[in-house]
């Protein structure tokens, strides 16, 4: 039986478009009330994965259940329980904000009174009350995105899927959208989102799956992932003519209580430490005691970038041009 805290269960999911494999052998779970992120470069297969979960794209292999319902066999039930905020500004330029929401009220089979009550509530949430009766072609990018989010929330879903929620937005709008997303989590809504912004993944997501070339490389909370790389690191270099003191220094440093591991590198040491604040003076002290003249010490705290590079072998911006996402 499924763990009640698990709201999405993905098992060996795959999708091919003709000869092209978009995603392969994906398995992960999403827990109730968390913000779960799919992080990866363009074309990694994030959107394809999301679209299988929202039932608009049938998987080629594997299964996925949303709130216990299979996305293929019980697609209609899944659709009535989720909300979706697409990547494109999927607004109709000729309709007003309110008309968008009214249309969706009809598509989710809400009564007129129910729809109107939801509309008032959502317009207030995303601060679009004043603009509700203007046609969407007069909206700014940020306003369109807000309307998109209101549309995704109209059915009062238990899970909301957001595809690149802040793509192409200015900084202010982005922060505003982050606020809404956090607010949703506070209201007990589970969020699944894709992003290719490291900062967004780091700041917003409770757990992340790093996806690249159609497969999941690693899953965990941003902190876990960063700690997984070894946590904080001191990088010590020795003056050039004194490199013969290195083995001595290595042994001395290794004996320090806050040091987890020490690796030799050319001309110095990489020291993985628990607390850089306390270990830094201790390392210097050891060096002085052992008569090693240091050339420099660098302190390095891993960022999500490093996690990404460590698991995919390349930076996020570089991407993998040979993988394709459906048009």
């Amino acid at each position: 039986m499924m763990d009640p805290a698990v709201v999405i269960n993905v098992a060996r999911l795959g999708k091919t478009f003709g000869p092209v494999t978009a995603v392969e052998d994906l398995s992960f779970t999403v827990r109730a009330g968390e913000i779960f992120g799919l992080l990866g470069p363009n074309g990694a297969g994030k959107s394809t994965t999301l679209r299988m979960l929202i039932t608009v794209l049938p998987p080629s292999a594997g299964t996925a259940t949303v709130l216990g319902h299979d996305v293929v066999r019980e697609a209609d039930t899944v659709r009535s329980l989720i909300g979706y905020v697409p990547q494109e500004r999927a607004v109709d330029r000729f309709l007003t904000g309110r008309e968008h929401l009214e249309l969706l009220g009809g598509l989710y089979h809400l009564s007129r009174t129910e729809t109107n009550a939801r509309i008032d509530e959502l317009l207030k949430l995303v601060n679009l009350e004043e603009h509700a009766d203007r046609v969407a072609k007069t909206y700014s990018g940020g306003m369109k995105r807000k309307l998109d989010i209101a549309c995704g929330l109209l059915p009062n879903p238990r899970i909301v899927f957001l595809d690149e929620p802040t793509l192409g937005l200015d900084v202010q709008s982005r922060l505003k959208i982050w606020d809404y997303i956090r607010q949703l989590r506070e209201n007990g809504i589970t969020i699944v989102m894709t992003t290719n912004y490291l900062e967004e993944a780091d700041q917003l997501c409770d757990r992340l799956a790093i996806i690249d070339g159609g497969t999941i490389r690693v899953i965990g909370s941003p902190l876990e992932l960063k700690t997984g790389l070894g946590g904080d690191r001191l990088s010590v270099t020795i003056k050039e003519h004194e490199t013969d003191t290195l083995p001595r220094l290595r042994e001395g440093v290794m004996a320090l209580p806050l040091v987890r591991d020490v690796r030799l590198k050319s001309g110095g040491l990489d020291i993985l430490v628990e607390s850089p604040e306390k270990s830094l003076p201790a390392v210097i002290e050891v060096a002085q005691r052992l008569d090693c003249s240091l050339d420099g010490i660098e302190y390095h705290r891993p960022r999500l970038d490093d996690v990404f590079v460590a698991h995919t072998g390349h930076g996020l911006r570089g991407g993998t041009p040979d993988t394709t996402e459906e048009e």
């Binding site: 929202i54 209609d76 989720i82 494109e88 500004r89 598509l107």
Partner: peptide
């Protein structure tokens, strides 16, 4: 092309 169709298809219609 602009994703509106997909939005409609994600609803229980």
């Amino acid at each position: 092309e602009n994703g509106f169709l997909e939005r409609m298809m994600s609803t229980p219609i």
